[in-house]
């Protein structure tokens, strides 16, 4: 980002040679780097939650910047559900091979044993068991005290007041009473035995900022974000991609090829696609800016019950 600096200097009225003003993306980037460094410096055993989505990609990129020339001093943790898109697994393995960062994959053994899946158990149980429980298991197993997450405040109204350093009890619960005021750039990362802290370096980024930054920095992302012809079925008005043979089809239901892309990526049976011709990043951004419904519409889990986001947070989903 720094090459861009030279030609955007503003001159002050005093006539001094003004140093270039930082752009909003440079300021966000610096803030995220500051947060990453601060959390790592105050942690004994940090980890970065890696969901393979675009926010994770940006977060990993920022981590590489923050500690350069050292590699990020923590592993990535992918809490897997076995139901992600195949393209996500491919992308994850390629990224890890290229960046040399250590990757930990956790699959909740109870889920494997019971064969938990979104079709027979429903999205709520599926998500709770694989993701929420799986995450707690992985954090406990490795004794991580700080976990970076890619959540943003603009994602949802209830997120708007979430802290950047968010304290969780030993049971991983988010207790509103435990949350601490955050002033200036001073973050309180102290915790007692058993407590852990979720740290959100992208808190102040918007969806547009993330896309813009990916574009500017040419950060690799899963190809599913770009439109291509893919097999889909329509269920309750949502387009679901038939990503593998585990997808049960109703009698007479036939997948059709459509040009689609995804605004957000998760478990394929729970992730709605949008019809689109946007096969480049600028076109995706263009579509996002012009038409549209907000990002979370694609996440089937949100429709379960109202206020579900808040509930999930209390249970430790994020």
């Amino acid at each position: 980002m720094n090459e861009a600096q030279g030609d955007q200097g503003s001159t002050t009225t005093t006539g001094l040679v003004a140093t270039p003003q930082l752009t909003h993306l440079q300021r966000l980037e610096a803030e995220s780097i500051h947060i990453l460094r601060e959390a790592v410096a105050e942690s004994e055993n940090p980890v970065m939650l890696y969901s393979i989505g675009k926010d994770s990609s940006v977060m990993l990129h920022l981590a590489r910047k923050a500690f350069h020339p050292s590699p990020p001093p923590f592993p990535l943790l992918h809490v897997d559900t076995t139901w992600k898109f195949q393209a996500m697994y491919d992308f994850r393995d390629k990224m890890v091979a290229e960046s040399g960062v250590e990757l930990l994959v956790h699959q909740n053994p109870d889920c494997i044993e019971q064969g938990i899946n979104p079709f027979t158990h429903g999205s709520a149980v599926h998500t709770d068991m694989w993701k929420t429980e799986g995450l707690k298991q992985a954090l406990d197993q490795h004794g991580f005290d700080v976990a970076f997450g890619g959540a943003r405040r603009d994602e949802e109204k209830s997120r708007a007041k979430e802290r950047i350093f968010s304290l969780r009890s030993a049971q991983h619960r988010w207790d509103p009473k435990l949350q601490r005021p955050e002033l200036w750039r001073v973050y309180n990362a102290r915790r007692n035995q058993g407590e852990n802290i979720r740290v959100f370096p992208l808190s102040n980024w918007t969806e547009l900022d993330v896309w813009q930054y990916i574009h500017l920095e040419q950060i690799p992302i899963v190809p599913l974000y770009l439109a291509a012809r893919r097999p889909v079925v329509e269920r309750d008005g949502t387009l679901i991609m038939v990503d593998d043979e585990r997808m049960p089809l109703a009698p007479g239901e036939v997948p059709v090829e459509k040009s689609i892309r995804f605004r957000t990526l998760g478990c394929y049976p729970l992730t709605g696609a949008v019809e689109s011709e946007a096969d480049t990043l600028p076109k995706v951004i263009q579509e996002m800016l012009l038409t549209t419904t907000s990002e979370r519409q694609g996440r089937v889990i949100d429709f379960d019950s109202s206020g579900s986001m808040e509930k999930k947070k209390q249970e430790g989903y994020f």
Binding site: A4, Q8, L22, R27, L28, Q212, P282, Q286
Partner: peptide
């Protein structure tokens, strides 16, 4: 001209 828009947007201050 989305490219031009993006370029302008990149330079915004905060």
């Amino acid at each position: 001209d989305i490219e031009a828009y993006l370029e302008a947007h990149e330079r915004k201050s905060l």
